[in-house]
């Protein structure tokens, strides 16, 4: 004979990632490392911005490391190690985002005792990473004017869950006929607590604003 029973589970699937993210953060803090997680579309300028920040920190005598996440290849990884910093490459293969578990493994490959700052570059995707914090202290989303001035309205969630919003490539705004103020206004409304930085990473304009927004 059989019977039907109702069993309570109360298991939050996303909470498991959040728990691992908290563990990553605790590990980083044990080593006095401040970590930044960069999100944004492919081509928005994430890698270049990290490269600029790494050079800036180096000039101040601070050591950085990076984790480069991509679906495939090691292009970003190669660019980052060229700046003389330790880095780990994560090819997710099929996954559209990094998760705390993948970052935990990447941390095993980095000399945590020797670094002051960690930059984590997520897969270029504006939807999936939202549900998966990694354990960084500050989450930065990078968008560029070339993505259009309706960009923030099209992908609102990622802006709600970021601490710093970078509007990049403002030198191209006129050519693209995009008004960066629209992007700024939309971002401000979705996340009034976020810091917003307008910059042109290629030529270094606005880099100082980002450096101060990140407390570097």
């Amino acid at each position: 004979m059989h019977k039907v029973v109702t069993v309570d589970m109360e298991k939050d699937i996303l909470a498991e990632n959040r728990r691992l993210a908290d563990e990553n953060r605790a590990l980083l803090e044990e080593h006095d490392i401040r970590a930044f997680d960069f999100l944004g579309a492919i081509g928005s300028g994430k890698t270049l911005i990290i490269e600029k920040l790494v050079d800036h920190l180096k000039s101040k005598g601070k050591e950085s490391a990076a984790i480069a996440g991509d679906v495939s290849g090691d292009d970003d990884y190669q660019r980052l190690v060229a700046h003389g910093i330790p880095a780990a490459n994560i090819s997710t293969g099929k996954e559209c985002h990094l998760d705390a578990h993948l970052v935990d493994h990447a941390l095993e490959d980095l000399p945590l005792d020797k670094i002051d700052y960690l930059f984590i570059e997520n897969v270029g995707n504006l939807v999936c990473p939202v549900d998966f914090p990694l354990g960084s202290h500050v989450r930065v989303v990078v968008i560029s004017v070339t993505e259009g001035d309706d960009m923030v309205r099209k992908h609102p969630a990622i802006f709600a869950f970021s601490d710093v919003i970078v509007i990049n490539k403002i030198d191209l705004a006129e050519a693209m006929q995009v008004d960066p103020r629209i992007l700024e206004r939309d971002a401000r409304r979705i996340n009034p607590g976020a810091k917003i930085v307008k910059m042109d990473a290629r030529h270094g304009n606005g880099l100082d604003d980002l450096i101060s927004a990140l407390g570097l």
Binding site: H2, V4, V5, T6, M9, E10, I13, A160
Partner: peptide
């Protein structure tokens, strides 16, 4: 700040079990 809306929780399940 967000207080709810980020969960994906298995609440419960109805099972057929041996009596």
């Amino acid at each position: 700040r967000i207080i709810s809306g980020r969960e994906c929780t298995i609440k419960n399940l109805r099972l057929v079990v041996p009596d």
